[in-house]
């Protein structure tokens, strides 16, 4: 564990807490893409298949349970909670995410570390996470005005993978046999997808204005 990875995990945790706060405090999920939440639930379930077979540390196990539990809870809330579900922007959240699932799965069948069920699903979850934010970014652009909590959620979600890139650089420099190209390349793509969001987020913060994404 290094400071970059810890910072990344904490930032990721903050993004989940911000989203839970938004949903429970405002009883609304306006501006949040259910499709991105469902993709993230799939990412965590397929990545943590080793949850009960490999014990790495208490921290690792607890965080896995938190991410799986929170992502499923958010999907449940947005689908079935009688108050929250009413504020879901159904007509704006129309990204055809089956494409993302299909491409990620085919890529995982071709590019993986070992051809085992766990490894193929792990690679699938890494590729899927890189593109899982797309429905959310499209929804933010379509809904124009971005409320603070939704903007902060996406900001922290993007920042966490940027910390992980620093973690991979650090591990590459300090550990002889650290080669994890699947995560690194995928993480770079993932962070790059946030680039324009970060730019407009910074502009809105600098001008102390509402976050406006160009349609």
């Amino acid at each position: 564990m290094n400071i970059f990875r810890l910072a990344g995990d904490m930032t990721h945790l903050i993004s989940v807490l911000v989203l839970l706060l938004k949903i429970y405090a405002t009883k609304s999920c306006s501006g949040i893409s259910l499709k991105t939440q469902e993709l993230y639930a799939i990412v965590f379930v397929t990545r943590y298949l080793d949850l009960f077979t490999d014990f790495i540390s208490l921290y690792n196990t607890v965080m896995k349970l938190v991410f799986i539990g929170s992502s499923l809870a958010i999907v449940w809330c947005m689908r079935y909670h009688r108050v929250v579900r009413r504020s879901y922007d159904r007509e704006l959240d129309t990204f055809r995410y089956w494409i993302l699932l299909g491409v990620s799965f085919i890529l995982a069948l071709v590019l993986h570390e070992k051809f085992t069920l766990q490894e193929v699903f792990w690679a699938f979850s890494i590729y899927l996470e890189a593109v899982a934010i797309l429905p959310q970014l499209v929804l933010l652009q379509r809904s124009g005005n971005v409320d603070n909590l939704a903007g902060q959620y996406v900001f922290f979600l993007g920042a966490y993978r940027a910390f992980y890139i620093l973690n991979w650089i650090y591990r590459y420099l300090t550990e002889q046999r650290f080669t994890r190209w699947i995560s690194c390349v995928s993480g770079l793509v993932q962070t790059a997808l946030y680039a324009d969001f970060f730019y407009y987020y910074f502009i809105s913060w600098k001008n102390n204005a509402k976050l406006q994404l160009p349609a």
Binding site: R5, D9, D54, I56, N60, F67, E113, K114, F178, S183
Partner: peptide, 10 residues
């Protein structure tokens, strides 16, 4: 036990 293919990250 060594974690298969080093998945010690979240």
């Amino acid at each position: 036990d060594t974690v298969p293919s080093g998945h010690d990250e979240l």
